[in-house]
Structure formats: structure tokens, C-alpha cells
């Protein structure tokens, strides 16, 4: 058991409307700390983020390569609401793991859909105990989808095993009509599976088994 480095960006979302703002644009009910997905009108993933609720502000942790698109998506929708966005990626490192690693006192620890997330100030020296291969093996064992593998803009949240992040009755958000229709008709097009190797078109290739997203029959 351990934790690996996560290629993440960290945004500070300040203001009295921080949580309602994030709630209105994502698939999960954001009233407190949680994991949620931001989707477009076609319900394709823009990013899947951790929301850490703190007094008077929220911290949004997403996947590094999706940062520019997410900032554009969020900033164009702040319409006079009490929301201020700050990029604090350069101040922090993010790790993710199985939750049994004691963190330093400066750490912010968040229980995510994918595992335990540690946000550590860069001034604090902390080393990952897992390589990316070990993290991937853990994910395959637990059937956990992750950024850059299963979670990509090519898929919607249901296809990559993130149905738990799609709240059944929270109300409208971008992509909600598509996701609700898929659920009500029982057709989501694709689904996440773990299969014994060799696996064609594996999204996460493991030593013995791999994760893949396969078309629903």
C-alpha cells in the first residue's frame, strides 16, 4: 500500500457562491467536499475534479493537462457571482494512494472517489512510495478509472465507470439531459471492464490484467 504523485492542478475558488457555482456546472451534488465531473453539452468529460470545501472557499483539484480548458470553462461562466479563481498549483504537490500513508502535518487530506488525496505544500519534502506502475496495478485490482487512461474527453462519465459521480436527481447541469437519457434507457454505449491479458485497446495495461472501455453489447 502507498501513494503516487498525481499530475494535478490546484485552483482556489473563493467567494460565497463557490460551492453553488461548482454544483451548477458538474454532475455530482456539490454541497461539501466530494469528487465531481465537469461535462460539456454532449456529456463528454472536460475534467473530473476533487472539491475540498473549506471555510468560505473551495479547492478544486483536477488533471494537469486539462487545466487550461477547465479554467476557460469556469472563468467564462462567472457572471457577476461572488466567485474568485486563483491558481495555486505552483505552491502545492498532489499525491494519491490507498490512504494508509501518514501525511505530514501541513497536508490537506481528502477522501476521493479514486483513493486518498494528499495536497502537500511544495516547501515540505515528501516522496511518493508508489511508482506510476504500482499505482496502476492498484487501480486495476480495485477497478478504479483514472485521468489520462480511462478518464478522457473522449468518454462520458458513465462509460468510464464514474456512475457514482452522476447524481440521479440534483437538477440541471451541462450534459445532464444526455446522461439522464442514457440511464433511463439503460444504454450508455460503453462500460469499464477489467480483463485478463492480453487485452486489445487496454486503457491501463497491467502485468496480468488490464482496464479497458468496451462497447456495450
Amino acid at each position: 500500500m502507498g501513494m503516487a504523485r498525481h499530475d494535478a492542478y490546484v485552483l482556489l475558488v473563493q467567494g460565497s457562491s463557490a460551492l453553488p457555482f461548482l454544483d451548477g456546472l458538474s454532475t455530482n451534488l456539490v454541497t461539501d467536499s466530494c469528487t465531481t465531473a465537469f461535462t460539456n453539452r454532449a456529456a463528454k468529460i472536460i475534467d473530473v475534479c476533487e472539491v475540498i470545501s473549506m471555510t468560505g472557499q473551495a479547492v478544486l483539484i483536477g488533471y494537469g493537462p486539462h487545466k487550461a480548458h477547465m479554467i476557460d470553462h469556469l472563468s467564462s461562466r462567472v457572471l457577476g457571482q461572488d466567485v474568485v479563481l486563483q491558481d495555486i498549483t505552483h505552491l502545492n504537490d498532489v499525491f494519491i494512494g490507498s490512504g494508509d500513508t501518514p501525511p505530514p502535518s501541513e497536508a490537506t487530506v481528502h477522501e476521493s472517489h479514486f483513493g486518498t488525496v494528499y495536497v502537500i505544500p511544495k516547501r515540505v519534502e515528501w516522496k511518493e512510495t508508489w511508482s506510476q506502475t504500482e499505482w496502476n496495478e492498484h487501480r486495476i485490482e480495485q477497478v478504479i478509472p483514472f485521468h489520462g487512461h480511462e478518464i478522457t474527453p473522449k468518454y462520458h462519465p458513465l462509460a468510464c465507470g464514474l456512475g457514482d459521480l452522476v447524481h440521479p436527481n440534483k437538477g440541471c447541469y451541462l450534459g445532464q439531459e444526455v446522461l439522464t437519457r442514457m440511464r433511463s434507457r439503460g444504454k450508455q454505449g460503453y462500460r469499464l471492464e477489467v480483463r485478463e491479458n492480453p487485452v486489445e485497446q487496454a486503457t491501463t495495461k497491467g502485468l496480468k490484467r488490464s482496464l479497458c472501455i468496451v462497447r456495450d453489447q
Partner: peptide
């Protein structure tokens, strides 16, 4: 976590 409130982290430019 360092949140940038004690040192200056510039707010992101919101599309206006």
C-alpha cells in the same frame, strides 16, 4: 496545503 492567502497568488483573469 498552501493556499496563497499568505503569499500573493494572482487571481485568474475571469473572461469579462
Amino acid at each position: 496545503m498552501d493556499c496563497g492567502t499568505c503569499e500573493s497568488a494572482t487571481p485568474l483573469q475571469v473572461h469579462k
